[in-house]
Protein backbone atom coordinates (compact mmCIF):
# COMPACT_ATOMS: atom_id res chain seq x y z
CA UNK A 1 0.00 0.00 0.00
CA UNK A 2 1.14 3.52 -0.70
CA UNK A 3 -0.24 6.71 0.66
CA UNK A 4 0.76 10.22 -0.26
CA UNK A 5 -0.61 13.58 0.63
CA UNK A 6 -0.63 16.70 -1.55
CA UNK A 7 0.52 17.00 -5.15
CA UNK A 8 3.53 18.31 -7.06
CA UNK A 9 6.24 19.93 -4.98
CA UNK A 10 4.14 19.61 -1.85
CA UNK A 11 3.72 15.90 -2.34
CA UNK A 12 4.55 13.94 0.75
CA UNK A 13 4.79 10.18 0.67
CA UNK A 14 3.71 9.01 4.10
CA UNK A 15 3.78 5.35 3.08
CA UNK A 16 6.01 4.34 0.24
CA UNK A 17 4.96 0.75 -0.14
CA UNK A 18 4.04 -1.39 2.82
CA UNK A 19 2.62 -4.85 2.60
CA UNK A 20 1.38 -6.84 5.54
CA UNK A 21 -1.35 -9.14 6.66
CA UNK A 22 -2.93 -9.51 10.05
CA UNK A 23 -4.64 -12.73 11.09
CA UNK A 24 -7.68 -13.09 13.27
CA UNK A 25 -6.72 -13.26 16.95
CA UNK A 26 -3.18 -11.97 16.48
CA UNK A 27 -1.55 -9.14 18.34
CA UNK A 28 0.57 -6.95 16.10
CA UNK A 29 2.72 -3.99 17.06
CA UNK A 30 3.42 -1.31 14.48
CA UNK A 31 6.59 0.31 15.71
CA UNK A 32 8.22 3.48 14.49
CA UNK A 33 9.27 6.97 15.40
CA UNK A 34 6.90 9.85 14.99
CA UNK A 35 6.59 10.76 11.32
CA UNK A 36 7.53 7.26 10.24
CA UNK A 37 4.08 6.65 8.78
CA UNK A 38 2.86 4.23 11.45
CA UNK A 39 -0.25 6.25 12.20
CA UNK A 40 -1.04 6.52 8.50
CA UNK A 41 -0.75 2.75 8.25
CA UNK A 42 -3.15 2.33 11.14
CA UNK A 43 -5.65 4.72 9.56
CA UNK A 44 -5.56 2.67 6.36
CA UNK A 45 -6.05 -0.56 8.27
CA UNK A 46 -8.90 0.94 10.26
CA UNK A 47 -10.55 2.06 6.99
CA UNK A 48 -10.48 5.67 8.10
CA UNK A 49 -8.56 6.48 4.94
CA UNK A 50 -7.99 4.95 1.51
CA UNK A 51 -4.54 4.08 0.14
CA UNK A 52 -3.31 6.13 -2.85
CA UNK A 53 -2.39 2.84 -4.45
CA UNK A 54 -2.67 -0.75 -3.34
CA UNK A 55 -5.51 -2.50 -1.62
CA UNK A 56 -6.85 -3.17 1.84
CA UNK A 57 -8.49 -6.59 1.89
CA UNK A 58 -10.84 -7.54 4.68
CA UNK A 59 -11.82 -11.20 4.73
CA UNK A 60 -10.79 -11.44 1.07
CA UNK A 61 -12.92 -8.46 0.13
CA UNK A 62 -11.49 -5.23 -1.20
CA UNK A 63 -12.33 -2.47 1.28
CA UNK A 64 -12.76 -0.12 -1.68
CA UNK A 65 -16.01 -1.87 -2.55
CA UNK A 66 -17.40 -0.90 0.84
CA UNK A 67 -18.96 2.52 0.68
CA UNK A 68 -20.95 4.83 2.93
CA UNK A 69 -23.33 2.96 5.11
CA UNK A 70 -21.69 -0.46 4.88
CA UNK A 71 -18.26 0.99 5.59
CA UNK A 72 -19.61 2.90 8.59
CA UNK A 73 -21.41 -0.08 10.02
CA UNK A 74 -18.36 -2.29 9.52
CA UNK A 75 -16.19 0.19 11.41
CA UNK A 76 -18.82 0.48 14.08
CA UNK A 77 -19.36 -3.25 14.56
CA UNK A 78 -15.91 -4.72 13.95
CA UNK A 79 -13.45 -2.10 15.18
CA UNK A 80 -12.69 -0.57 18.54
CA UNK A 81 -10.37 2.39 19.04
CA UNK A 82 -8.10 3.21 21.96
CA UNK A 83 -6.29 6.53 21.77
CA UNK A 84 -3.41 7.99 23.69
CA UNK A 85 -5.41 11.21 24.27
CA UNK A 86 -8.55 9.27 25.40
CA UNK A 87 -11.02 11.55 23.52
CA UNK A 88 -13.67 11.22 26.16
CA UNK A 89 -16.62 13.59 25.90
CA UNK A 90 -16.12 16.10 28.70
CA UNK A 91 -19.05 16.63 30.99
CA UNK A 92 -20.72 13.40 29.96
CA UNK A 93 -20.78 10.51 32.41
CA UNK A 94 -18.54 7.47 32.15
CA UNK A 95 -21.49 5.33 31.13
CA UNK A 96 -22.57 7.77 28.42
CA UNK A 97 -19.05 7.75 27.00
CA UNK A 98 -18.94 3.98 26.98
CA UNK A 99 -22.26 3.53 25.20
CA UNK A 100 -21.46 6.03 22.41
CA UNK A 101 -20.66 3.31 19.82
CA UNK A 102 -23.89 1.50 20.78
CA UNK A 103 -25.83 4.71 20.30
CA UNK A 104 -24.24 5.15 16.89
CA UNK A 105 -25.17 1.56 16.06
CA UNK A 106 -28.79 2.46 16.83
CA UNK A 107 -29.26 0.22 19.85
CA UNK A 108 -32.22 0.96 22.15
CA UNK A 109 -31.64 2.93 25.34
CA UNK A 110 -32.31 0.02 27.69
CA UNK A 111 -30.04 -2.43 25.89
CA UNK A 112 -27.36 0.25 25.64
CA UNK A 113 -27.36 0.75 29.37
CA UNK A 114 -27.27 -2.96 30.10
CA UNK A 115 -24.37 -3.58 27.74
CA UNK A 116 -22.55 -0.46 29.03
CA UNK A 117 -22.76 -1.67 32.61
CA UNK A 118 -21.59 -5.10 31.53
CA UNK A 119 -18.45 -3.68 29.93
CA UNK A 120 -17.83 -1.39 32.88
CA UNK A 121 -18.07 -4.43 35.16
CA UNK A 122 -15.50 -6.20 32.99
CA UNK A 123 -13.11 -3.28 33.53
CA UNK A 124 -14.05 -2.84 37.20
CA UNK A 125 -15.47 0.60 36.70
CA UNK A 126 -19.08 0.01 37.77
CA UNK A 127 -18.75 2.37 40.74
CA UNK A 128 -17.58 5.14 38.39
CA UNK A 129 -20.46 4.78 35.91
CA UNK A 130 -22.12 8.02 36.97
CA UNK A 131 -18.93 10.05 37.40
CA UNK A 132 -17.96 12.63 34.86
CA UNK A 133 -15.35 11.18 32.54
CA UNK A 134 -13.09 14.19 32.96
CA UNK A 135 -12.95 13.71 36.75
CA UNK A 136 -11.14 10.36 36.51
CA UNK A 137 -7.44 9.60 36.80
CA UNK A 138 -5.40 8.80 33.67
CA UNK A 139 -5.48 5.05 34.23
CA UNK A 140 -9.21 5.10 34.86
CA UNK A 141 -9.77 7.20 31.75
CA UNK A 142 -7.87 4.72 29.61
CA UNK A 143 -9.94 1.89 31.11
CA UNK A 144 -13.08 3.83 30.15
CA UNK A 145 -11.69 4.21 26.63
CA UNK A 146 -11.10 0.44 26.48
CA UNK A 147 -14.61 -0.15 27.77
CA UNK A 148 -15.90 2.10 24.99
CA UNK A 149 -13.84 0.19 22.43
CA UNK A 150 -15.25 -3.09 23.75
CA UNK A 151 -18.88 -2.03 23.93
CA UNK A 152 -19.73 -3.20 20.42
CA UNK A 153 -17.90 -6.54 20.86
CA UNK A 154 -15.35 -5.68 18.17
CA UNK A 155 -13.16 -8.21 16.41
CA UNK A 156 -10.25 -5.80 16.12
CA UNK A 157 -8.99 -3.19 18.57
CA UNK A 158 -6.72 -0.43 17.26
CA UNK A 159 -4.64 1.04 20.04
CA UNK A 160 -2.67 4.17 19.22
CA UNK A 161 -0.01 4.65 21.92
CA UNK A 162 -2.41 3.28 24.54
CA UNK A 163 0.05 3.79 27.40
CA UNK A 164 1.66 6.97 26.11
CA UNK A 165 -0.04 9.20 28.63
CA UNK A 166 0.20 6.87 31.62
CA UNK A 167 2.83 6.22 34.27
CA UNK A 168 4.54 2.84 34.29
CA UNK A 169 2.29 1.19 36.87
CA UNK A 170 -1.04 2.21 35.32
CA UNK A 171 0.41 1.62 31.86
CA UNK A 172 1.16 -1.94 32.87
CA UNK A 173 -2.43 -2.43 34.06
CA UNK A 174 -3.80 -1.14 30.75
CA UNK A 175 -1.38 -3.40 28.83
CA UNK A 176 -2.53 -6.39 30.84
CA UNK A 177 -6.14 -5.63 30.04
CA UNK A 178 -5.46 -5.29 26.32
CA UNK A 179 -3.42 -8.50 26.10
CA UNK A 180 -5.90 -10.48 28.16
CA UNK A 181 -8.64 -9.38 25.73
CA UNK A 182 -6.43 -10.62 22.91
CA UNK A 183 -5.59 -13.88 24.65
CA UNK A 184 -8.91 -14.75 26.29
CA UNK A 185 -11.48 -13.27 23.91
CA UNK A 186 -9.60 -13.69 20.65
CA UNK A 187 -9.83 -10.01 19.78
CA UNK A 188 -7.23 -9.00 17.21
CA UNK A 189 -5.00 -6.31 18.65
CA UNK A 190 -3.15 -3.77 16.55
CA UNK A 191 -0.94 -1.54 18.65
CA UNK A 192 0.78 1.52 17.25
CA UNK A 193 3.67 2.52 19.47
CA UNK A 194 7.27 3.61 19.76
CA UNK A 195 7.61 1.82 23.08
CA UNK A 196 9.82 -1.24 22.55
CA UNK A 197 8.71 -2.88 25.79
CA UNK A 198 5.06 -2.76 24.83
CA UNK A 199 5.86 -3.92 21.31
CA UNK A 200 7.82 -6.87 22.66
CA UNK A 201 4.65 -8.25 24.27
CA UNK A 202 2.93 -8.59 20.90
CA UNK A 203 2.94 -11.72 18.74
CA UNK A 204 4.49 -9.79 15.91
CA UNK A 205 6.35 -6.50 15.50
CA UNK A 206 6.43 -4.50 12.31
CA UNK A 207 8.99 -1.74 12.11
CA UNK A 208 8.26 1.25 9.92
CA UNK A 209 10.77 3.90 8.99
CA UNK A 210 10.27 6.73 6.50
CA UNK A 211 7.21 5.08 5.06
CA UNK A 212 8.83 1.71 4.46
CA UNK A 213 8.54 -1.58 6.27
CA UNK A 214 12.06 -2.23 7.49
CA UNK A 215 11.69 -5.32 9.60
CA UNK A 216 9.04 -7.78 10.66
CA UNK A 217 9.78 -9.80 13.76
CA UNK A 218 7.72 -12.66 15.08
CA UNK A 219 7.98 -13.24 18.81
Amino acid sequence: MKKSYGTGANRFDALKGVSLDVRQGESVAIVGKSGSGKSTLMHLLALLDEPSSGQVMIEDKDAKTLKGKRLNSLRNAAFGFVFQQFFLTPGASVLENVILPLKIAGMGAKDRRARGMEVLAQLELVDKAKNRATDLSGGQKQRVVIARALANRPRVIFADEPTGNLDTATGAVVEDILFSLNRDDGITLIVVTHDEELAAKCDRRIYIRDGLLVEAVAA
Partner: peptide, 10 residues
Protein backbone atom coordinates in the same frame (compact mmCIF):
# COMPACT_ATOMS: atom_id res chain seq x y z
CA UNK B 1 -17.11 14.65 15.96
CA UNK B 2 -13.99 12.92 14.59
CA UNK B 3 -14.36 10.14 17.13
CA UNK B 4 -18.02 9.58 16.28
CA UNK B 5 -17.17 9.44 12.60
CA UNK B 6 -14.37 6.97 13.27
CA UNK B 7 -16.88 4.88 15.18
CA UNK B 8 -19.05 4.75 12.11
CA UNK B 9 -21.44 7.69 12.46
CA UNK B 10 -22.29 8.90 8.98
Amino acid sequence: IGLMKAMGLS
